[in-house]
């Protein structure tokens, strides 16, 4: 039975699949972004009936604001995942940027200079991790796990565990976290700019094509003359640098630096990228997909909040969505031998 259906498939000149109906469905679902948009739209329609408040501009803006800054980190994580790495330290490193920026500001630095130094420090943290991964040969998981704890420790040590109030931040600096251009918050504009830039870079440039080669098959990439260690070093550093950018924006938005900020952020960020089609094995993923993944998670959270579902349920549901997305993906791609 199995043998004969395979033969038919071969005669039809295509790879063997489970059946014809399934094949068509798979073709559509294979476009991960299409599927995610459909699910998001469905959720929006359902929620607009469930809550009259849902489709108001205020709520929509809140939902987008909720993932916009984190979305910048999602971009970095997605690129890192494509290259075959992972970073558990994103939450701590984001907090580190806030703490360093805030501390320097309180020490009398100009807030812009303080921010640049903070981003520079985060970039250095990324380079530090990249060094351990590419030169020493440790796994991303372990290195970033260690750095996650170390960076958090530095945050707590530097602040004595208390948030730094930055009440004297000048308004032009607060603008990047709190201002709007027309009706649209600057945070959202910054986020969209980062997404657009890296989406184009990733899909269209030879530099980022090497990221795909490296993540898809590091040995084959090395056998194609690609300096794979350099690529992995760069993606590791970039991810931390983008954490720095996010941290600075958070600082401007909250007018404070919180040493405990970003606990559990790595889960959200990795989940968003994976729901959006990035693979932990490297080689696949898109910025658009990852951002849609982040949007879906944020939308679900806000929907559950509007429906008065307990916060504790939200974690359970978020985790389940992640598991469902990855399982579906596995089955859709299984036919590839």
């Amino acid at each position: 039975m199995r043998g004969s259906s395979v033969e038919q498939a071969i005669e039809a000149g295509e790879a063997p699949r489970d059946g014809r109906g399934m094949a068509a469905a798979k073709g559509l679902l294979k476009m991960r972004e299409t599927g995610l948009i459909a699910i998001i739209l469905l959720l929006i329609v359902v929620m607009s009936f469930a809550s009259p408040y849902f489709l108001t501009w205020v709520n929509i803006r809140t939902v987008i604001m909720a993932f916009a800054v984190e979305g910048i980190v999602v971009v970095g994580m997605t690129i890192l995942l494509i290259s075959g790495g992972i970073d558990l330290s994103v939450g701590s490193v984001t907090a580190l940027a806030m703490v360093i920026g805030g501390w320097l500001f309180l020490a009398g630095f100009d807030p812009w200079v303080a921010s640049l130094i903070a981003i520079g420090c985060c970039t250095a943290v990324g380079a530090f991790m990249g060094f351990f991964v590419t030169k020493i040969g440790l796994h991303h998981f372990i290195v970033s796990l260690a750095v996650m704890v170390i960076a958090r420790g530095i945050c707590l040590l530097g602040t004595g565990g208390r948030p730094l109030g930055l009440y004297t931040l000048p308004p032009e600096f607060k603008f990047i976290g709190q201002g709007s251009i027309g009706p649209i918050p600057v945070v959202i504009l910054t986020f969209l700019a980062v997404v657009a830039i890296f989406d184009i870079l990733l899909r269209r440039t030879t530099m980022f094509r090497k990221v795909f080669y490296t993540g898809s098959n590091e040995r084959a990439a090395a056998y194609s003359g690609i300096r794979t260690k350099r690529v992995i070093f760069a993606t590791t550093t970039l991810c931390s640098a983008l954490c720095g950018v996010a941290g600075v924006i958070y600082m401007a938005r909250f007018g404070s630096a919180q040493p405990t900020f970003g606990l559990g952020m790595e889960l959200n960020v990795i989940a968003a990228a994976v729901i959006g089609g990035a693979s932990l094995n490297g080689g696949t993923g898109t910025i658009l997909g990852a951002i849609l993944g982040a949007a879906l998670l944020s939308l679900v959270s806000s929907s559950l909040a509007l429906l008065d579902v307990s916060v504790y349920w939200q974690d359970i549901i978020r985790g389940s969505i992640l598991l469902a997305a990855v399982t579906i993906d596995l089955f859709l791609n299984k036919r590839r031998g």
Partner: peptide, 17 residues
């Protein structure tokens, strides 16, 4: 193991060098 990027396209494989 080290010659091709199996999950990438034919065209992308050919340009890799």
């Amino acid at each position: 193991g080290s010659g091709l990027f199996l999950d990438m396209s034919i065209a992308e494989n050919i340009s890799a060098l």
